[in-house]
Amino acid sequence: MNPTHNSYEEVAHQRRGSADYREGYDEARRAFLIGQAVRERRLALGLSQTEVAARAGMTQSALSRLEAGGAVPTIPVLERVAVALDSELSVTISPHAA
């Protein structure tokens, strides 16, 4: 390997320890967990993505992205989705686990 170039693993290892990486990872984790909760509630009600999206005033593809964790929704979007799912939106702030 050329001594002036690092391997992908070397570069990735350096970046994984950065604050930016951790922040991006945390954001992706939150988006995934929100999407998972929306999908589970929708399935528990026996509703299709199309039905929930129509009730929430959004497109089916936007709801699909939300459920897949591909988008971090705003509070107003979450409120509309919660209403469409006959649910209550609850946002909490808690201390980190020890």
Rank of each mutant, 00 (worst) to 15 (best):
Y8M: 10
E88A: 12
R39T: 04
T92S: 13
V11C: 07
Q14A: 11
L85W: 00
H5N: 14
D26F: 13
N6Q: 15
A56V: 04
V81Q: 00
E9R: 11
A53E: 01
Y8L: 15
R55V: 03
S90W: 05
F32A: 12
T50E: 12
Y21P: 02
F32Q: 09
D86F: 07
R65E: 10
A37H: 06
D26Y: 14
V77K: 11
G69A: 09
G24H: 11
Y21N: 10
E27C: 12
Y21Q: 02
A12D: 09
A37D: 11
A56C: 06
A12I: 10
V11A: 12
A82N: 02
S94V: 13
V52R: 00
G46W: 06
A62D: 00
R30D: 07
V83S: 02
V52C: 01
Y8E: 08
S94D: 11
R30S: 13
L45M: 09
S61G: 05
V72L: 12
A97C: 06
L47Y: 13
Y25K: 15
R41S: 14
E23P: 00
A44F: 03
A53D: 00
E51F: 03
L33F: 13
A37S: 12
A37L: 14
A62E: 05
E67G: 01
R39K: 15
G35H: 02
P3N: 08
Y25D: 14
T50I: 09
R42Q: 01
Q14F: 06
H13T: 13
I75G: 05
L63G: 01
H5Q: 14
A97W: 13
S61Q: 09
G24Y: 05
G17T: 01
A82W: 06
V83M: 01
Y21H: 09
